[in-house]
């Protein structure tokens, strides 16, 4: 079943890349048995679009993101960025992983600078590191080591480490999962503002239906493992959005129904 709502025409800045996922299936071998994780996933994301992925835990969302990042090759199907097949990782597609995975031997500043350093352009671009640390509100912790940070601060550092690279596609795996609800709301507005300003294509995995509706142009609902696309819902509301919007409440009810949680909304 594919639910389609009426979408308003939205124009996107030109920085983002187009992402095409065509007939992608993937599986893991565990103890000789094959565990199918993705089943014929087809998804086309326009340049600059903000797409949210919703699905039950363990259905294969992070796996799909690893394929988009180029860290793994799909068993079947293909992924393309601006018509070019994805064969490996590239800094134009940056991932913020579910776990912040900061390098414990580097300070906050050095962690954020990682991408520029790896690409050999840090010397000329140091101001970008400072600016993005300012953006996530961690200027006073620039010289702290990861073990001195709270879980939420670590996730903000991970976000900054991705943003500093000016990606064409930003891939986010529950990046706000560990934040308290106030910081979370603030970071959501920050993310939308940033996305509108920079125009990168965004693919966001989240467990939070409301978060998906406040942030995304489109919400993709995945089935249980192996993940299939269950619904592709356009969210036709301008930004900034209001949590109390009855249109969003109606969509939320619909999505919770798709996830088998009718009773809880």
């Amino acid at each position: 079943m594919v639910v389609q709502s009426t979408a308003e025409a939205i124009t996107y800045p030109a920085v983002g890349a187009e992402l095409d996922i065509e007939g992608v299936s993937h599986a893991f071998d565990i103890d000789g048995a094959t565990l199918p994780v993705l089943d014929n996933v087809n998804l086309s994301i326009a340049p600059g679009e903000f797409v949210a992925l919703l699905g039950p835990s363990g259905c294969g969302k992070s796996t799909l993101l690893r394929l988009v990042a180029g860290l793994e090759k799909p068993r079947a199907g293909s992924l393309r960025e601006d018509e070019a097949r994805i064969t490996g990782p590239h800094p134009s597609r940056v991932v913020v992983f579910q776990d912040p995975t900061l390098f414990p031997w580097r300070t906050v500043w050095d962690n954020v600078a990682l991408g520029l350093e790896a690409q050999g352009i840090l010397k000329a671009q140091r101001h970008r590191v400072d600016a993005v640390i300012e953006l996530v509100g961690l200027s006073s912790f620039r010289n702290a080591y990861p073990h001195q940070l709270s879980g939420g601060m670590a996730q903000r550092v991970a976000l900054a480490r991705a943003l500093v690279n000016d990606p064409k596609i930003l891939v986010l795996d529950e990046p706000l999962g560990k934040l308290d609800s106030l910081t979370r709301i603030a970071m959501q507005s920050e993310l939308v503002a940033l996305w509108q300003r920079k125009g990168f294509t965004t693919l966001l995995v989240t467990h939070d239906v409301e978060e998906a509706l406040v942030l995304a142009n489109r919400v993709i609902v995945l089935s249980d493992r192996p993940a299939r696309i269950k619904a592709d819902i356009a969210v036709g509301r301008p930004y900034p959005r209001h949590r109390g919007d009855p249109y969003l409440a109606e969509l939320r009810k619909q999505i919770l129904g798709l996830l088998g949680l009718e009773a809880t909304w």
């Binding site: 990042a69 590239h90 800094p91 995975t101 990682l114």
Partner: peptide, 17 residues
């Protein structure tokens, strides 16, 4: 942990890095 390599590779790190 391979997670460190994943992070570095998506940020454009070469093998020497």
């Amino acid at each position: 942990s391979s997670a460190y390599y994943d992070v570095a590779r998506t940020l454009g790190a070469r093998p020497s890095f």
